[in-house]
Simulated scan of single mutants.
Amino acid sequence: MMTITEQNKRTVAVQARGLRKTYGRGETEVAALRGVDLDFPAGRFTAIMGPSGSGKSTLMHCLAGLDSVTAGTIHLGETELTALNDKALTQLRRDRIGFVFQAFNLVPTLTAEANITLPVALAGGKVDAEWFASVTTTLGLTDRLKHKPHELSGGQQQRVAVARALLTRPDVIFGDEPTGNLDSRSGAEVLGMLRRSSREMGQSIIMVTHDPVAASYADRVVLMNDGVLVGELDHPTAETVLASLASLGA
């Protein structure tokens, strides 16, 4: 019989324990993370929020293996990221993590389809045609696949970036202000797609945002201030997020 501990491990996408991150030394030392303990459930959409300088972006970069930690451990499923060398970490990011950034990061000379399949091509893999069709249909891109980025709206370009992140079926997708360069309508489009990816495809999503409306699309909001966790909200609304941020002076 599976123990509660074993069951919990299987349902946690990313786990952080005792995370500390400092920059500089001596009088110039800055503590960006001060002992963070946090679990991110598999198949859920979590937003990380806090005032400027709260450590939210540093936390995401550490969780995604884009930055090293000063102390503590990070697990992606059963794999300890903080124990991997650079080569193994690069491979893990390629195979098991997806990224959606504020900048769309699309190759301007490639079609939407080629941009979506680029990570698979670079890895020398074969595209799963059925999954590709499912992802692009869900994201409403089937009639835009032959278009190049300059022929797409901002919202469509970001949906291409989301499709690219989903195509490899990563363990988790990290979003760094993914709607920061979009108007409100396009942003709502992309956030709705991320929420559907979580609810309909079982995708684990961790997003950093400063926008209470964007955070309201998540299942849970984690609040940070001065490098520590200060609370969380389940089933957030823009109003509850705004009130919580106001209490932090954000």
Rank of each mutant, 00 (worst) to 15 (best):
R169D: 01
L167W: 09
E151T: 06
S153C: 09
R185S: 11
N181C: 05
A188W: 08
V160Q: 07
R159N: 10
A188F: 09
F174S: 07
E189G: 02
R196T: 14
A188N: 12
G202N: 00
R164D: 09
R196M: 13
D171N: 14
I173G: 02
D143Q: 14
G155P: 04
S186T: 09
D176N: 03
E177G: 07
T168Y: 01
Q158W: 10
A161G: 10
S197C: 15
R199Q: 15
R169S: 04
P178S: 10
L152F: 02
H147M: 09
D143L: 02
D171L: 05
L191Y: 12
L145I: 07
M207N: 06
Q156C: 10
G154E: 04
G175Q: 02
R196N: 10
L191N: 14
L145Y: 08
Q158L: 09
L145V: 09
L166K: 03
Q158T: 11
L167G: 07
V160G: 05
S184C: 08
T168S: 15
S153N: 00
V172F: 10
L166G: 02
V172P: 00
Q158E: 05
S184Y: 10
H150D: 15
V190D: 07
R169N: 03
T168L: 14
L194Q: 05
P149W: 11
I173E: 06
R199F: 00
I173C: 03
P170I: 06
V162H: 08
E151G: 01
R199K: 15
S198G: 10
A165M: 08
R144G: 01
E151Q: 15
A161P: 01
A163T: 03
R169P: 05
F174Q: 06
I173W: 06
V208N: 04
G180Q: 12
S198V: 04
A163V: 05
P170K: 07
F174Y: 12
G187D: 07
K146D: 14
S198L: 02
R144L: 14
L167I: 12
R196F: 13
Q156N: 04
G180W: 12
G154C: 02
P178G: 10
G187V: 03
L194R: 09
F174D: 04
R196K: 15
